[in-house]
Design a protein around this nucleic acid. Structure first.
Lengths: 230, 230
DNA sequence: CGCTCGTTTGAGAGGTCTCAATTTGGGTGG
DNA sequence: CCACCCAAATTGAGACCTCTCAAACGAGCG
């Protein structure tokens, strides 16, 4: 069942799709599907070959890697964003698994359609370039944080950017703390202790509500000499 | 001083450039430079805006991040490969610094030229997509290793892939051990102790020569349950 | 009301880093 | 050609961070 164009304005607005021709987009949607998944549904598994490019239209997606039964969350996605573009483009196995965290609606574009369109529509190719470059930079930042910041500093850094994104000093945790801990590369216990430690540095936390009480102090803590958030 | 086409066969052969039209490539080279640098020369600095796309034609490049005076090597490049493509494409600040480790020759393509060509030549755009996707996947793998492997396991994993790349059981260290340690996300001391530990697992090391004496044993050590090297 | 599961707290072990001392190896100048 | 020198590498000791395991706590739900 192809996707009706009426359902796609949010998708069309993504930088990945926004510049492509009306015709290419319509064709692509015609060959794609919009599907609902319950919470905790497995979407893809590490090691499989890519069948689809996915776009989170609604819900939450957990991208994680597994080794020896242990999971490590690499990224968490909210609407509207695409995932596993790189695997699709290169037609190589997924490096990550994905599952829904909440009931979700996903756009599924067959990978062959992505590659076809990408060959024919230069604007779409540019969209892909922008998207890939952005994601590349994003993982690079994560890697840098993992390498050069302590777990408490990573947590502080996350609190800062969450507050900035929210536009307020106070915000709600968007996830279970254990997921968030994994996303930040630490255990739930370390997360809990880290949050306690941050109370000395301008953060207060009650239940799922986190408040930055002293932004300057917190910034000072997270980067005693870090370049402005490049 | 533009680059003479006679100097460019190796560059032209890169997947990034190999599919583009002869004309686009010639124009691009005409607006680029080929420049020599001594060892330990700073090429770019984290936080600066991208002026050029670089290609290592000869020598060795160290890509590293800095915080508080501490350096962490993120990648090490040999001929022929490009670097900092993502920053150029997005016209956003470098996330990494770069310096030469050995006397090197670099192709410098002004970033404006990259973006111009990329708009006009669809084949070049495809080349960029392939390159970005490949690099994205590469950082992702590094991140996964950092998150889920101990330092000794990362070292073992590096030894395995080096031997595979060399096509032999024995190979020479391509770098100072301290650089390699940083690249693997550990201290020189940990590297040294890790290498000692690996002697129990099928690796012997003398000076700059590393030999895999028991590949099966080493593989067993590095992934008690890891998926084939995705 | 009593599970169940996530979170927090506690105690302890382990891995990795830091600092310091020693050894090794490569390069230089006599 | 050798002795010396410097930087890198190794080794040792100890501290610190983070993890693991265990138990207590608390909130949501049947």
């Amino acid at each position: 069942m192809p996707v009706r164009l009426a359902d796609t304005p949010a998708i069309r607005a993504l930088p990945l799709f926004s510049e492509m021709s009306e015709q290419s987009f319509a064709e692509m949607m015609d060959r794609s599907m919009l599907q609902r998944f319950p919470a905790r549904a497995d979407i893809i598994r590490e090691g499989e070959m890519p069948d689809f490019l996915y776009v989170v239209v609604e819900g939450t997606i957990d991208l994680f890697a597994t080794r020896d039964g242990v999971e490590s969350t690499i990224d968490i996605l909210y609407p509207v964003s695409s995932f596993i573009l790189a695997a699709v483009v290169r037609d190589e196995p997924y490096l990550k698994s994905a599952r829904t965290l909440a009931p979700s609606q996903l756009l599924m574009v067959p990978s062959q359609v992505v590659r076809d369109t990408f060959t024919r529509d230069a604007a779409f190719a540019r969209g892909i370039v922008g998207e890939l470059a952005a994601r590349y930079r994003s993982v690079t930042r994560v890697l840098k944080n993992d390498r050069m910041l302590s777990s408490t500093e990573r947590l502080a850094s996350w609190v800062l950017s969450s507050a900035r994104r929210a536009g307020r000093d106070s915000f709600e945790l968007p996830l279970e703390k254990r997921k968030l801990a994994s996303y930040l590369g630490m255990t739930p216990e370390s997360y809990s202790r880290g949050m306690t430690a941050l109370e000395q540095h301008g953060v207060s936390s009650h239940g799922a509500t986190i408040t930055v009480t002293d932004a300057a102090r917190l910034k000072e803590f997270v980067r005693p000499a870090m370049n402005e958030d490049i």
